[in-house]
Design a protein around this nucleic acid. Structure first.
Lengths: 208, 208
DNA sequence: TTGTCAATTGTCAGCGACTGACACTAGCCT
DNA sequence: AGGCTAGTGTCAGTCGCTGACAATTGACAA
């Protein structure tokens, strides 16, 4: 069961997280100091660093949940699906579960604002891309095992995942730049971009 | 013509760059302080920051040259080549020019060591990926213009470049992990991985 | 209930990246 | 030779982050 101490800890952590995201998305990440966040929750700066390893980590706390969820989503795909098809389905179907899980931590609207802040803040974008590399490595190993190939000698798992990740990045970027942040918008965009992959790679663009 | 003042500046800059890379590659990036770099060249810390915007920038000074060279390499490709073919040729032929240009700044061997340090240092890998995004955006616009499509309405330029970038990242990673850092090794690896793209995306891996 | 133990927190001191302000030095140009 | 200016060093200060130590507060048994 959950003791009072645990409840207090959870409360502090959630308060720090919410305060941080709120400040980041309104004033900007760089213009927000750790002292400000700590002060907003009325704890010392030192305590902040006991809950989050750094200013960056709190910015990705929610993002982290969605990444884990995507990995699980891929793992749960039926074995008969081809690799790229499994990734596609995982992403298209994963969005709802993601929405639910996010809401349990912070308002979805705050998460979306934070997502855009990440995309538009160089330091955060860099961290986001590096985190993606880690996730992609996980998924590459997952696919390799699933298909029965060796990830260290067969480059195809990493290639497929890298390509898929690239398409997702372009999709996310476009989604952030637009003005429809609904669930259906991102799904449409994802499907559309994945469908145009072949044409982008092999086609003669001038023909169209 | 080049005045004495200019010569001194160039000398200081090159000395700082060499000292920084030398220290980064031997002691590690995180374990090297800006004070150390400045001291090695016998200038004040403040002066270091007048030549480089930050500790990170000096780490990418050479990398920056190679990126610019790659962009030019793509721009110089004949108009009849299909987009992906142009990228492929640019990268395969670009390596020699890169080697020459690098040598004019620092020993190629030092550059290669620095490259591996970047790949293995989280903070530098993150910065590297973000820089790649910038380069990719430049190339996407280049390809779009070249093919006569609008980069803001047609996703294919960004998709193609993102996919190509993804393959290159996997290639670089593999190259760094191996033990043959010669020119021919990276060229072979690049060509091989690009050739396996189709198989990675559409094939049934279990068949092979 | 009370006292002990352990977890949590605040305070303080300090490092490293980075910046602005100001004074000083050294190359440039007449 | 002497004034002008670009380049440099020094100093002080901010911000992210960490270790050490003391104070507090919840947990649990006597």
């Amino acid at each position: 069961m959950e003791t009072l101490r645990d409840r207090k800890k959870r409360h502090t952590r959630e308060a720090l997280l919410r305060a941080a995201l709120e400040l980041f998305t309104t004033q900007g990440y760089e213009h927000t100091t750790v002292d400000e966040i700590a002060e907003a929750v009325d704890v010392s700066q030192r305590t902040f660093f006991r809950y989050f390893a750094g200013k960056e980590e709190v910015a990705f706390a929610v993002q982290e949940m969605t990444e884990a969820l995507f990995v699980e989503s891929v793992r749960a795909r039926p074995a008969h699906e081809a690799p790229m098809e499994a990734l596609r389905q995982a992403v298209l179907e994963g969005w709802e579960a993601i929405q639910e899980t996010v809401e349990s931590a912070v308002p979805v609207e705050l998460y979306l604002r934070m997502y855009r802040t990440i995309e538009s803040t160089p330091a955060l974008l860099a961290a986001h891309l590096r985190r993606s590399v880690t996730t992609e490595e996980t998924i590459a190993r997952l696919l390799a095992e699933r298909e029965g190939v060796d990830v260290d000698t067969d480059p195809r798992p990493r290639l497929a995942v890298a390509v898929f990740g690239g398409v997702m990045r372009v999709t996310e970027r476009q989604w952030c730049a637009g003005d429809d942040f609904g669930l259906e918008a991102i799904r449409r965009l994802t499907a559309s971009y994945l469908d145009q992959l072949g044409s982008a790679l092999t086609g003669n663009w001038r023909a169209g």
